[in-house]
Design a protein around this nucleic acid. Sequence first.
DNA 1: TTGTAAGCGTTATCAA
DNA 2: TTGATAACGCTTACAA
Lengths: 341, 341
Amino acid sequence: MARRSRPGLTDIAREAGVSVATASRALSQPELVRDDTLERVLAVARSLGYVPDRAARALASGRTSTVGVVIPTLNSPVFASTLQEMQRNLAEAGFQLLVASHEYDPASELAAVEKLLSHGVDGLVLVGGDRLEATWRMIDAAGVPILQMWCGRDDHPIVGVDNHLAGLLVARHLLELGHRRIGVITGNLRHNDRQAERLRGIRAALAEAGLSLPAAHVTEQPLSVPGGRGGCAVLLELADRPTAIIGTVDVIAIGAMAECQARGIRVPSDISVAGIDNVELAAHVSPSLTTVNIPSEGIGAQTVAAMLRQISGGGRPESIVLPIELVERHSSALPRRKPSG
Amino acid sequence: MARRSRPGLTDIAREAGVSVATASRALSQPELVRDDTLERVLAVARSLGYVPDRAARALASGRTSTVGVVIPTLNSPVFASTLQEMQRNLAEAGFQLLVASHEYDPASELAAVEKLLSHGVDGLVLVGGDRLEATWRMIDAAGVPILQMWCGRDDHPIVGVDNHLAGLLVARHLLELGHRRIGVITGNLRHNDRQAERLRGIRAALAEAGLSLPAAHVTEQPLSVPGGRGGCAVLLELADRPTAIIGTVDVIAIGAMAECQARGIRVPSDISVAGIDNVELAAHVSPSLTTVNIPSEGIGAQTVAAMLRQISGGGRPESIVLPIELVERHSSALPRRKPSG
DNA sequence: TTGTAAGCGTTATCAA
DNA sequence: TTGATAACGCTTACAA
């Protein structure tokens, strides 16, 4: 049986000499009660240290003032800043963020979604569009407002950026500098739409230039600095070593630079490196990293705004694509002139 | 009015030809129902796509299977990995993590705690021990199991590391190398126990060596790479420029190195730099960063374990101090020999 | 503007 | 091992 401890509406009502209904209204719909009553109730509530029981409120009202977000991992500067911004904006609106992560495992994503729905979230934010059919079914069945972040399936609204374009931009930049052999270090493509899209963008840019991307020039690695180092090592061993390397996320690109430097290969004079994301650190590594700016905080803010709009029943949910742009820094330069195919 | 949508226990009971009580037991205390009944109920539940309503469950049982954590910010590699680990461990035990952050503002911390309590969390995890008295009162009044992470007040259990020792270790290391003028870049000391403790440790090490730390050699900066750069710039301008710089967090130390390198000052030959935390990146910047390893994931795991123990009523809550150690890398070396005071 | 009272979906008590 | 039923604390028609 539940603890009988914290003061409840009943206590407030008694102390203030009103009914629970009035007490409830005073706290939730103050405009419905007369000023003096309101004040009296609020005073009592304060003096008793009243904290509403959200569970009861949720049960009675069907709303929880809660938004759930399911992300691949907390361990990423990009997601961290997006989340931080979401949390900030939601808190301002009196909402609480429920975070669940799944480490890129579709099955645990399903579990996470189920748990969040079971908590009665008023809205659900998902990252990416590639998930189990069972997960989609559960989401659609739940009938809660849903939003995809970063990218996703067209049949549900998306707040994010054009990842294809991001890949296109870096690749074009390197091509314009004169690079012809480009290596790519990417994350796992199987369950990561963003990586896959970015890679497709890179291929598209190469295609524009009449080039193709040999399978050997693409390596899948963990999305971490060591992953970038490992991927770089692989590319450097190639017979026709690339003159430029793209990390499909900055963290990987930074790892790649570290690996080059550890081997005495100079960036950008010996080899160019570029990333995507524009994490804070990118501007401060040396050489500073050429990358594509992805407005991760903007994505968080816009997602929250769109979600709150949906929750309050306002307007059709519509997709939002935020602008991105190339940030040219010092890790990319003309390829070394030397005889090559 | 609440939505009439998802199937509930009533539906299951009807379909399975049992009472709601039995249906409830089958799902929550399977050992109390006969095998064939159990199977029947579970089958129906599955076929109906039943998802329990946590709010109702919470209201009826007084438990939410939820643990709240209040952290300064999500935007920190250290907290991110701790959270990720907490989330993982809690999920395994069927719990959900509720995260709230307050950006080092005591007032919003109070608000965060209130919201979490209002959500009925079964346990509350806080970072640090420096908070408003009102916050402490609210926490104590709530009577939920509470745990402090990283460091905290002695009157409540703490899972963390000895931050004083952390400062002591780096400082001793530099002193042993022969450095006598040490500069320190730290975060805001006012509302950040960890930074303050670390700084005290540094002072203690200097005192051991008969030295003191002039106020001018300590600069408070934002806990970010640019913060580290700015702090470093300040220290480099000093008349008696330090021969070694300690960043009380790695992120700052990394920024400091970047600033040195941008100015053509070489690390470690011209100046030594060291940090505290041992974030993933520390091993991969160049030169690799000397630091103190703080087991951030271990802290998360231990915190969850201790919390679950408390929630299930097992044992006295006791503090846990995890071991830390110096990680000597390549950013620290003997000071340049040159005439000095 | 306020009060009365019927739920909200689940758990837990008590009997059967 | 199961069933009937009273909570749990709050919101919200509906009535006054």
